[in-house]
Write a protein that binds this DNA or RNA. Structure first.
Length: 596
RNA sequence: GGUCCUAUAGCUCAACUGGAUAGAGCAGCACACUUCUAAUGUGCAGGUUCGGGGUUCGAGUCCCUGUGGGAUCACCA
């Protein structure tokens, strides 16, 4: 079925040609959705056309409107308001649209792997601290974008790069050696990442005491910070690690292993996963040979002290270091190496999408530019999925001030809150305890995911632990609730042998027409969300759809309708709405329960 | 100082990428449950879209400028 918009646009072009003897470009034909308060489905803006028509906007609209209704059988009427030509699509079209999507396995979703391979990187944690609220936004975003790309026909590789080496993990290691008394996740019953995080905090605390003592003894603050024995020990540990000292490496592996176990649990709860993991301990040395090659190509230049730079002043940026004077790699070196490694590893890879906070915008701008200059033209379509910080009422999250919202704790609280509400409602008495547990998670986690994903990624967002997350109104559970309503209707229909769908054309109510029009918009929403790497568009779309359905449900008999054809149509509409809700929400990583 | 992001109802967010009278949720008020699941629906009230210029038939959206908030410009990662 050709999209109705294409039909109208083509006909409108012909109209302009025939009526005004003027070639119509895409710019001249502006077709948009008709606003709610006016009658019609699509609106043609006539202002761009008046200079060719040599008539008023109203008269121009009337002429084109008459032409279109005459020549496009799907259109049954029009009206012109202040130069806006509102076109009415007939019930027959909407009805046949419903017939057409009914048998599809997943309406709106493009056929699998029909487009180019994309890589999405997200999470990318340090191994010295547990995951927090910021990671939740990151993971939900990255995971959702990967799913959205898949739904648009792109195969994807989901990856994370784990920052498993460096001074931060050495700090935890030193503290554990000193104060740990051999404590393990098993002996303490603590999650591995929490345990390692605990020693990172312990390090910081002891380090501060040492600094204070040194200042007491007459050092300046700056000296004290550099000379504190604990810090020297951690630095020494890092050196030993780099020399591959067996004992150090063994400890490092043990503690990182604990962290991975802990992370794995959190990821499972979050419902995210990865196709491939990269570790910085493997990649931190890469990129140096590429810098060497780039030097030969003249992309980079060497300064007198031996350090290597790239001059990006012509591109409006500044000069950037890519190799230290001692020949060691910096962050940028590593990222160049990793990116190129991935392009080589996955030959068909169109682009890499990096889900990283907006504080690194400059870094990625530089990185992509360097990659291009090195001859990797794919980098042109690389994308930094940059997102804003999640702020708390008291400001930014600061681990030092204990204002970090822990991911595990928050997930747990969400499920508990869902449980409390569900118990108050008392609709689940015959559900097994195990299923209840799953349900509370679906609802609680769904609320959290929806809350974090419905906001434009690039915006800084506010999270008030006490008030932010609701289960009523514009929320995940509201959407789940309406999905549950569609399922309940269909279950009942099936149990009573009532037919879903009908081939008999019946006239539609306004509510039904609006719902159908909204369903019709789903594929366009999906591709826009993919093009802009923006899950919030899907969240907002699904909410709009659900509001329409909820209103329809409340005001129109569905199962109780006595006319077979109308009831069949309404049930089919219910079914398709449910399907689209489910498809959309699963792209956000949110599960849809069958009842609640 | 340079660059980037951002400012919309009391609060949290939308606005189909330049279109009509700027929309939702929460909070407030008023109605509607012997009902196809009320985690709901229908209303009311709430706005100088940060200020000032400009472009355009038309600006919350684009340009300039000022102000507030955030980020970044490390031989840190």
């Amino acid at each position: 079925m050709t999209p109705i918009e294409d039909i109208i646009i083509a006909a409108a072009k012909k109209a302009v040609q025939e009526l005004f003897n003027q070639e119509a470009t895409d710019k001249l034909i502006q077709l948009q959705h008709t606003r709610k308060d006016f009658e019609g489905d699509f609106t043609l803006v006539t202002f761009p056309l008046v200079r060719f028509a040599k008539k008023s906007p109203e008269a121009t609209g009337k002429l084109i409107g008459e032409y279109l209704v005459e020549n496009v059988e799907e259109l049954t009427g029009f009206n012109v308001v202040k130069g806006f030509l509102n076109l009415v699509v007939g019930d027959a079209y909407w009805f046949s649209f419903l017939q057409e999507i009914a048998p599809l396995p997943q309406y709106g979703v493009a056929s699998k792997d029909s487009k180019g391979l994309r890589m999405v990187e997200y999470s990318s944690p340090n191994t010295n601290k547990p995951l927090h609220l910021g990671h939740l936004r990151n993971n939900f975003l990255g995971y959702s974008v990967a799913k959205i790309l898949q739904a648009n026909g792109h195969p994807t590789v989901k990856v994370q790069i784990i920052n498993d080496r460096g001074i931060h993990i050495c700090k935890s290691m030193v503290a554990w050696q000193k104060f740990g008394n051999g404590e393990t996740p098993t002996s303490s019953g603590m999650k591995g990442d929490k345990l390692v995080g605990k020693y990172y905090v312990a390090f910081d605390k002891a380090y501060k005491v040492e600094i204070a003592e040194l200042i007491e003894g007459g050092r300046t603050e700056e000296e004290a910070k550099k000379q504190a024995p604990l810090l020297l020990e951690a630095q020494n540990m890092l050196l030993k690690w780099e020399e591959k000292d067996a004992e150090t490496v063994a400890l490092w592996e043990k503690m990182n292993g604990w962290v991975y176990e802990g992370f794995e649990k959190t990821y499972t709860e979050m419902g995210v996963d990865f196709d491939k993991l990269y570790y910085e301990s493997n990649t931190y040395l890469t990129g140096k040979d590429i810098v060497e090659k780039g030097l030969e190509q003249g992309v980079f230049y060497k300064r007198e002290d031996g350090s290597v730079w790239i001059d990006l002043t012509e591109d409006g940026l500044d000069e950037k270091l890519v190799l230290r004077k001692d020949g060691t790699a910096v962050y940028m070196t590593q990222d160049i190496g990793t990116a190129i490694m991935r392009f080589n590893e996955f030959p068909g890879l169109e682009s890499q999408i990096y889900t990283v906070g907006n504080e690194q915008e400059y870094h990625f701008k530089v990185l992509f530019l360097i990659l291009e200059k090195l001859g990797f033209s794919q980098a042109k379509s690389n994308f930094h999925l940059s997102y804003g910080m999640v702020e708390l009422p008291e400001g930014k999250m600061k681990s030092r001030e204990g204002t970090v919202v822990d991911a595990d704790d928050l997930l747990d609280e969400m499920a508990q809150a869902a449980q409390q509400i569900a118990e108050e409602q008392g609709k689940l008495e015959d559900v097994s305890d195990e299923d209840k547990k799953e349900l509370y998670k679906a609802i609680g986690y769904g609320a959290l995911k929806y809350f974090l994903l419905r906001v434009d990624p690039k915006k800084t967002m506010m999270f008030d632990p006490k008030e932010s997350i609701d289960f009523y109104g514009n929320t995940g559970p509201f959407i789940q609730f309406n999905y549950v309503r569609t399922r309940a209707l269909l279950r009942k229909a099936a149990a009573n042998g009532i037919q879903v769908g009908s081939s008999e054309l019946v006239s539609l109510t306004d509510g039904e027409r609006m719902l159908l029009h909204k369903l019709y918009d789903f594929p366009a929403t999906l591709s826009a969300a993919a093009a802009q790497y923006d899950p919030s568009q899907i969240a907002n779309y699904v909410y709009d759809l659900v509001k329409l359905y909820s209103s329809f449900y409340q005001g129109t008999p569905i199962l109780k309708e006595e006319n077979d054809a109308i009831r069949g149509m309404r049930l089919e509409l219910t079914k398709q709405t449910g399907n689209v809700i489910k498809t959309g929400m699963e792209l956000l990583g949110i599960h849809m329960p069958e009842r609640m």
